[in-house]
Design a protein around this nucleic acid. Structure first.
Length: 569
RNA sequence: UGUCCUGUGGUGUAACUGGCAACACGACUGACUCUGGAUCAGUAGAGUCCAGGUUCGAGCCCUGGCAGGACAACCA
């Protein structure tokens, strides 16, 4: 798992305003909540966070930052059957890695189990809640349908005393799971299904990851969330669109909780959808459990830990999040926007290095056998402060197979027989002979170099069409490189009614190259360090690396107008 | 036969109390270049879901439609 977590300071100046900012500004102008702004990020610890959560994290913490308010981290842990400490820990790690700080405001819904239980008793005493002995199916049938009103439970009018006694016995564990539930008494004919006497407590005899076996009744989401917000002094409870219809219920509970002017306000926004990926925690879990990927942090996963391992930076994710905006329109964002965001950041910050993925040996026939020299290379042309490094050069080199064509088309500028190209930061070379085996497979290339072009410039002003990357065979570090492609072949794998999303898994989403050569500079790299392999893409060092064998992950390729050109024809 | 929400270039978002539909990604040109990267300059692409109405003027206001989404877990 991730070791090198560097908290990056939040210097983003963009923070594009959105409709929630407008609502808050307006309220502030009216003096609401005495100018206080307090949000929260409330994940259920039942899985790893994904890029969709990142949007929510940036939104909630971003609002706090923008309005000089606060943002809490709260675990919505009201269902012990699904929640685990492993998830709690990963979530905290991910939020921190993204660059946000909840300071001392770490909360759990389970912190409020007692208060919630007290409130439930209060509702019973006010004759606004009752114990229902019917089973799940019966209750469900009585709820009616969105177009048909529900009917009342025969237990709806039990006396307060009886309800109090029953709920006490539920709490004491006298009943089996499913034997009965506590329901709010609202309106079985409401056009809003959520107002038809919603269940607020159920019996669960599963130990809770924090409270152990102290409780055997647990509050439902709707009963816990608004009250938790209230007790924490949350002013804006931001959630996704599907909770829109829950809002009247959210308000109903808070209105019955306490008489005061202060009310947390629920505001909904559209969750993030990305092309070629799925965002459902349940389905991501399925990919992990069925081993379609190698864990939650597999670099192909849209999880934050996956993106981190893949080489995404917190800045790039924050910028992405800002760029996509916040609205109530259900849309799908093109992954290319995410990719643009990493390229943008890594272009400015990544150490450049030369690495050959598919090696083709080149022998410089006029370069002395046992000699070698060191050439100066620029670490990052976008940032002079990053300085230069030495790159070893010798008689035997590797170049990229794609950089040589025996019979090149007219627009191919790279190496071919008789053609001269520049080896980046080194010399001009000319291909003099293609050496093949008896089957006609290319074994290696014989080239000559021009000693006068050392450093890459010809004193006679001679130009070459192309500069290619290379690596000195005897100095290079043999590495493994993992190339990733999109996990799904379909733009919307989740959007087909009759086809399971797994049908669209891309069988070629991972390609492992074991014979790659990278310049010795990378020997000192630590896991997660970012590099640009010149002319290829951005890569980072994987946790699986050993000093003997580095392993690199492809974060994203460089834009490539050559293959684009090729695909035209 | 319901309630709630949403409709602006290919995609995502803007447009302050009505005033020439803007920005980013993507696409395409060209310039430059020791990364076919980056950078720079530029082009195309929507008349704002539809139909009426108010107004000198409507993406914004009004009326009526249409389309898409959410809601019937003892999940969150």
């Amino acid at each position: 798992m991730a070791e090198n977590i560097n908290i990056t300071e939040n210097t983003d100046t963009l923070k594009k305003p959105n409709f929630i900012h407008s609502i808050i500004s307006e309220e502030l102008k009216q003096g609401k909540n005495n100018g206080r702004v307090h949000t929260r990020f409330p994940p259920e610890p039942n899985g790893y966070l994904h890029i969709g959560h990142a949007k929510s994290i940036c939104l909630n913490f971003g609002i706090a930052e923008k309005f000089a308010g606060k943002c809490n981290l709260r675990f919505d842990d009201t269902n012990p059957t699904k929640e685990e400490v492993e998830y709690v820990e990963s979530i905290m790690e991910d939020v921190r890695w993204l660059g946000f700080d909840w300071e001392d405001r770490l909360y759990y819904a389970s912190d409020y189990f007692q208060k919630l239980h007290d409130f439930a008793i209060q509702l019973i005493k006010e004759n606004k809640a009752y114990v229902d002995d019917q089973d799940a199916e019966t209750i469900s049938n009585q709820k009616g349908s969105p177009t048909r009103p529900g009917t009342e439970s025969p237990f709806r009018n039990r006396s307060v005393e009886e309800n109090l006694d029953l709920f006490r016995r539920m709490t004491n564990g006298e009943f089996e799971e499913g034997a009965c539930v506590l329901r709010a008494k609202i309106d079985m004919t409401s056009p809003n299904m959520h107002m038809r006497d919603p269940i607020i407590y159920r019996i669960m005899k599963t130990p809770h990851h924090r409270t152990g076996d102290k409780w055997c009744v647990y509050p439902m989401y709707d009963f816990a969330h608004g009250q938790s917000d209230f007790w924490e002094g949350i002013t804006h409870s931001i959630c996704t669109l599907e909770f829109e219809v829950h809002r009247p219920l959210y308000d109903w509970f808070v209105d019955h909780l306490q008489e005061t002017d202060y009310r947390p306000r629920q505001i909904e926004f559209a969750r993030l959808n990305l092309t070629y990926t799925i965002m459902s925690k349940r389905k991501l879990l399925e990919l992990v459990k069925d081993k379609h990927v190698n864990g939650w942090d597999d670099p192909r996963m849209p999880t934050i830990s996956g993106l981190r391992r893949r080489g995404y930076t917190p800045e790039s994710i924050r910028n992405f999040s800002d760029r996509i905006g916040v609205t109530k329109v259900d849309g799908v964002i093109d992954v290319s926007l995410l990719e643009f965001s990493v390229r943008e950041h890594l272009n400015k910050t990544a150490q450049r290095v030369m690495g050959v993925l598919n090696p083709l040996k080149v022998i410089i026939t006029n370069y002395p056998e046992d000699e070698s020299e060191e050439l100066d290379a620029i670490n990052n042309p976008e940032d002079a402060a990053m300085g230069t490094r030495k790159v070893p050069f010798s008689r035997e080199l590797y170049i990229e197979q794609d950089d040589f064509m025996e019979n090149p088309p007219s627009k191919f500028f790279r190496l071919s027989p008789g053609k001269e190209v520049r080896l980046r930061y080194a010399y001009f070379i000319t291909c003099t002979e293609v050496v093949k085996d008896e089957n006609g497979n290319i074994l290696h290339l014989l080239c000559t170099y021009d000693p006068a072009t050392k450093g890459g410039n010809a004193p006679d002003g001679r130009k070459v069409k192309s500069t290619i990357h290379w690596v000195s065979a005897k100095h290079a570090v043999k590495s493994e490189v993992r190339l990733y492609d999109r996990l799904f072949k379909d733009e919307n794998p989740d959007g087909h009614k009759d086809v399971d999303f797994k049908e669209f898994l891309n069988p070629d989403s991972l390609k492992v190259l074991t014979e790659c050569y990278v310049e010795p500079f990378v020997k000192s790299a630590k896991p997660l360090d970012h590099f640009q392999f010149e002319r290829l893409g951005y890569f980072n060092l994987d946790y699986d690396s050993t000093p003997e064998k580095p392993v690199f992950n492809l974060t994203v390729q460089l834009r490539d107008s050559w293959t684009k050109e090729q695909n035209k024809g």
